[in-house]
């Protein structure tokens, strides 16, 4: 069986942590800073970081269109925190650059500033009984989602984990904890696409 290669957008943010988690799950990873590095990927992760910074650099280095084309082909994409903002079609009170791929409305820093950042146990239906420790850092959440979007977890009645076709998104940071269930779930999406 051929190896799975996952690109991790490395413009800014916690990309190394995602690479480590994916590698522990058996995938190969590649840092993505320029369009030519996207060739031959089986999946793409958009990490946490500052979404405005990522948006500017996506535009400046012409990554926006090639990633949208990958998405159209059905290649799985996983966005966490800032990555959720990059995937959303609508961002509350903002016209910043995004990939506009998921039918969700997202609010930035929706839980508040850093002093409000928190960790909490959440339950994810796909993962059964065992709670998932989620780390929220100046996190966004999904204000509303179209019927085609599958809501996988909520916290305090706010949507924080969702999937729409080949797109998976979390408001929190699976790359900052040892629990690999979300990375494994994403890699299963990649395997069934392949």
């Amino acid at each position: 069986m051929s190896t799975t290669t996952i690109g991790v957008l490395a413009l800014q943010g916690a990309f190394i942590e995602h690479e480590k988690s994916l590698q522990v799950c058996g995938a190969e990873t590649r840092q993505i800073r320029l369009p030519e590095q996207l060739k031959g990927l089986d999946g793409l992760v958009i990490p946490g970081g500052e979404s405005t910074t990522m948006g500017k650099l996506l535009m400046a280095y012409e990554l926006l269109q090639p990633i949208k084309e990958m998405a159209k082909e059905g290649i799985p994409i996983f966005g966490t925190c800032a990555g959720m903002i990059m995937l959303a079609k609508e961002i509350v009170n903002s016209n910043q650059t995004s990939l506009s791929l998921m039918d969700i409305v997202v609010e930035r820093n929706a839980f508040g500033r850093q002093v409000e950042s928190f960790e909490a146990d959440i339950s994810v239906s796909e993962f059964g009984e065992e709670p998932y420790n989620a780390v929220f850092i100046r996190a966004p959440y999904i204000v509303s989602a179209s019927p085609g979007v599958k809501i996988m977890a909520s916290y305090d009645e706010k949507i924080i984990l969702a999937r729409q076709n080949n797109f998976l998104t979390a408001a929190f940071h699976p790359e900052l904890t040892e629990d690999l269930r979300l990375h494994k779930y994403f890699l299963e999406m990649v395997t069934s696409y392949k």
Binding site: A10, L11, Q12, G13, A14, F15, I16, E17, G48, G49, E50, T53, C81, A82, Q114, V115, E116, S117, F118, E119, A120, D121, V135, F136, I137, R138, H173, L176, T177
Partner: peptide
């Protein structure tokens, strides 16, 4: 229960600033 100001959360924000 939500826990604020934990070490993971404090260190985590710096992780998000990396490469910036």
């Amino acid at each position: 229960m939500a826990e604020k100001g934990t070490w993971t959360v404090k260190k985590g924000l710096a992780e998000m600033l990396k490469g910036g």
